[in-house]
Nucleic acid binder design. Sequence first.
RNA 1: GGCCCGUUCGUCUAGGGGUUAGGACGCCAGAUUUUCAUUCUGGUAGCAGGGGUUCGAAUCCCCUACGGGCUACCA
Length: 509
Amino acid sequence: MNTSKVRVRFAPSPTGPLHMGGVRTALFNYLFAKKNDGDFILRIEDTDQTRFVPGAEEYIIESLKWCGLGPAEGPGIGGEFGPYRQSERKALYKGYADQLVKSGWAYIAFDTPGEIDALRKEAEAKKETFSYAIGTREALNNSLNLPEKEVLKKIEAGENYVIRFKMPEDVDVTEEDLIRGQVTFNTTKSLDDKVLFKSDGMPTYHLANVVDDHLMKITHVIRGEEWLPSMPLHVLLYKALGWEGTMPRFAHLPLILKPVGKGKLSKRDGDKMGFPVFPLEWKDPKTGDVSQGYREAGYFPEAFINMLALLGWNPGTEQEFFSLDGLSKIFSLDRVVKSGSRFDPEKAKWFNKHYFQQKAETELARLFKPVLNGKGISASDDKITRVVAELKERCEFVTDLWGQSHFFFTAPGSYDEKTVKKRWKEDTPEKLLAIADIFETVGDWKADQIKETFSAFMNEKGWGFGVVMNPLRLCLVGGNIGPDLFVICELLGREETISRIKTAISTLK
RNA sequence: GGCCCGUUCGUCUAGGGGUUAGGACGCCAGAUUUUCAUUCUGGUAGCAGGGGUUCGAAUCCCCUACGGGCUACCA
């Protein structure tokens, strides 16, 4: 067993934006590395040139950065095991594929995609499935059946070929998965002769992955459950390459499922239900479609990470709030759950609310300021901080702030109809005018002073508080939202308060 | 279809032979807040089904059902 320093990698392929499931895989890798004083590295698996999407790699790197999951090695960062982009390692893989052919673990196959496709269709018509494997490979166009001379001739003639793994017959491959325990696969029952090296000169995932993990001294492969079925192939590959002694250990993470309905979480679910599935906003370079991001939706990275960490993992205690550092100290793979987890957007919001409430008012004000500026409003930091302080506990997102506070910065342009109907009575203007007058007499324009003067007057008149306060609120904010009425008065200032009362009266009269 | 993995409140989960099956989100109710929201307190709700093993099963075994993944010269 490998006892060297723990090294794990996150190995996405740049075929689009990083999905939150991918972020979670990165997170668990990161946490495992930190917990074990190991290295977390990023490797870009871009062996499929046809699926390359411009900007995807940058997106991945920026997403990890936003989440605080900085790799120790990777593209643009460097490290002694580079390059970290598989396309830049291209020259490396062919030798290993050839070695496999030489040792009899692999063979050369000349069948064209068209031919194989036809075979597949043919089998399908008979309600069977074609697989290139023992039982069919004997009759196909490959180096197992062709004389060596013929094979050489074809290659020299420039004929396209792939290199396939020669899956051994009827072997039970048993390997321990760190999350699931022992898993056994029978080679004949469940595995075919996978392509290791493509006709375009690139390795497939299987070869590149094993070669790179070996060369990069990866000790633990932590990846999504969709890879579990290919674990035996990889185990066999390590064996075939003579790397059994340093083979990494495997851990297959459960998938993140749709909030409702069947299947794994997809981009569509987010669009349909209005929650982000990507960490950052993504604009598809081809279609121009924009997908929502957690960052843009107003989530704090620490909330996003905290939520993700608890989706499929738990500390075994009742603690729910964790910083990345906190997680790094206690994370362990044996507390990863085996079954897929449905994602709950409500819980994500709840996490964000928690972190929002934890933030200092000045910090929140700093974040809110650009929002205000974007609306053409400039206000002193002091005022913004005061406003934020009053509204903080009724919000979950920085993006909620405006909806709760616009009236502090701009006078209401209209009045909520429902509220008008419910609260604005015939004698309301007269009463509010009296209040405006009494406001002129408030000594020190502070919330409690205003309240005191107001209450004294109300008691003297014998008016019901609700009858006056609700319409007053309507005048000042345009609806029935906002914090304590007297606080609103104070922050608005005496002049503005009275002016808004008068404007409302003349508008609603 | 084949192969593999899984299944505890609606959701995330604890619990791994003896528990009143615990917590969280959501939801509902009450209290506070002269609005709304917040906050607090309480409540609702679960071991997929059937067989074993055992004095005793949510827990171990088998079967069934259901869910999920894989089954590309994609990762």
